[in-house]
Amino acid sequence: MSKARPSDPQTGAIHPPAEGIGQMNFESAMAALEEIVERIEAGTIGLEESVKQYEAGVKLVERCKLILGQAEQRIEELKIKSES
């Protein structure tokens, strides 16, 4: 289970932008969201950047809601040929 932090260790920039969010699992999306909140909270980014971050945050929230809101349970069955 990879707990991928979506931020770049060098630049500290939030990854991935819009296109990556759609593929994120709940944990990654939530981690990215927390990171955005922490950044804005730290107050080190300007207004324009904070609005951009906010927008990304909203997208992450939508992603989380989409995952949680899923009503259909996906069940598959795997046939394994036993060696014994």
């Binding site: 709940f26 909140v37 804005i40 904070s50 609005v51 906010y54 945050g57 909203v58 929230v61 989380c64």
Partner: peptide, 16 residues
């Protein structure tokens, strides 16, 4: 989790 997402969203909104 839904509650957690909502509260994070609110924190984000109020901070912005």
């Amino acid at each position: 989790l839904m509650r957690q997402v909502h509260s994070t969203m609110q924190r984000l909104a109020s901070l912005t």
